[in-house]
């Protein structure tokens, strides 16, 4: 298989996207950065196959590394996801407090998603993959992608209760 060597600029441009992708999977900024670093080092060392979109390839590598990490720690289904709160300024008002409560509910809902649901949602919603691409990346049928995606969004919607 012939290889392509992306430029440093291409890699750097992709990193913010890969970082969000990694964070979406891990729910932990430090773990996400470790993941991103291993992805970048892998690309620097091995390049990419020719004719692949660098970002999508990095998503794929990132997801595979994440799975490896989960397997190694044997915590995939049982881990208690950690959500780091963004260090945003917090002006005091009832509205802000209400928004914060909503944000916490969203975070809890996302954290409560099973890994394989969150994985599909990450690949499609954050990674921008089509169902076909997601099926290829995750090595599952398209029907499984649709099913997990539907369940993931439904779970978040139900947990948050937008129309309650």
């Amino acid at each position: 298989m012939s290889k392509n060597t992306p430029s440093n600029k291409e890699i750097m441009d992709a990193v913010p996207h890969i970082r969000r992708f990694a964070y979406s999977l891990t729910r932990n900024a430090a773990d996400a950065d470790d993941l991103v670093q291993s992805v970048v080092e892998r690309i620097l060392q091995n390049g990419t196959p020719e004719d692949v979109d660098l970002k999508k390839w990095m998503f794929r590598v990132c997801r595979n590394r994440w799975i490896d990490t989960l397997r190694a720690s044997k915590v995939r289904q049982t881990a208690e996801p950690e959500i780091e709160e963004a260090s945003a300024p917090s002006p005091s008002s009832e509205d802000v407090a209400g928004s914060r409560m909503m944000m916490n509910r969203v975070q809890s809902a996302i954290a409560a998603l099973p890994d394989n649901y969150r994985e599909v949602l990450t690949v499609v919603a954050v990674g921008g993959a089509s169902y076909k691409e997601a099926a290829s990346m995750l090595k599952v049928p398209i029907g499984t992608i649709m099913s997990r995606l539907g369940r993931a969004r439904a779970m978040v919607a139900e947990e948050v209760g937008y129309h309650d």
Binding site: R20, Y23, S24, D34, V36, L121, R153, V156, V160
Partner: peptide, 21 residues
């Protein structure tokens, strides 16, 4: 729900990178 999920991923933008990265 989809939008919230994407936004939650973007939260990491406000977190400084690790020293190593």
């Amino acid at each position: 729900a989809n939008s919230e999920f994407i936004e939650s991923a973007n939260e990491v933008d406000s977190v400084p990178m690790t020293e190593s990265l």
